[in-house]
Amino acid sequence: MTQSLMTDTRLPKDTEPYVDDAHRQPARPLRDFLASLLSSKSGLVGAVLLAAIVLITLSADILPIADPQKRSLSTRYLPPVWLERGVIAHPLGTDGQGRDILARIIHGARSSVIVGVSAVLLSGILGLVLGLLAGLRGGVIDLVLMRLVDAILAIPAMLFMLVVALVVGSGIAPLIVVIALTNWVVYTRIVRAEVLRVKDLEFVAAARVSRVRVTTLILRHLLPNILPAVVVVATLNVGTVILTESSLSFLGFGIQPPQISWGQMLADGRQQLATSWWISTFPGIALTMTVFSIILLGDWLRDYLDPRLP
């Protein structure tokens, strides 16, 4: 799954001569940014949807919704309010234990967002550090790290995650570890390639008198150059992670109760899809819409930032 994100990374490089992104900053970045976003239909749709989702997630505690953990035998399998037997107290119905679907979706969004963002942050940091290490140090460290990267990239991500999950177990924290341990390779590659490129630039070569200055110089020129690529990859990555969590839930390694996640609701409710469709359909829609808006936003970001992915 993760690899599909990297789809574009090996596309033939554009032939136009390279212009340092750091020197191509627009004069009024925020205004340009917004203008570009507003003119892109899909980017705008993604941004608005995503903003709405994040807003609802953040306000989960103050919204007038039911307790997501409250079981009730008398309210099992209630359909959504607009169907016969539906009640206003449970607008999207209840599951087999009488728990409110809407409340669970809203609270479940948290796990999805937490896992998505933390896993991406963690793999980003890990990738950045190791990429810098490999690029700057070179030698044996570089060799070993890159063999590791090649190896992990050659294994389907889902397969690798399952094997890691066997070791660390399931739950929110283990899941973040599982995903981060799989995903860091993407960032390592980007960072390392950029370090190697910057290293060869003339002014860096000229500054080789003092070792410290070279590192600082590289870092200073490196970050603005890799940032767009990292931002694009990371954005799309959050979407992939949310999807991955649902697949892991399906295979039994996802987020487990008492924590709630969309993947878990979807995987648990799949058996009732034919009898009580609302149990897994609504979380499915929530998940799909979120990932959908992330992809739209990410695609637009890619066009806007136009990163040179190595």
Binding site: R71, A165, L166, G169, S170, G252, Q256, P257, P258
Partner: peptide, 20 residues
């Protein structure tokens, strides 16, 4: 877990995949 909570314990569930 629900019954144990009713009895006054702070019961929590821990779910693990079968091999784990």
């Amino acid at each position: 877990v629900g019954y144990l909570q009713d009895a006054g314990l702070d019961a929590q569930i821990e779910v693990q995949e079968w091999s784990v």
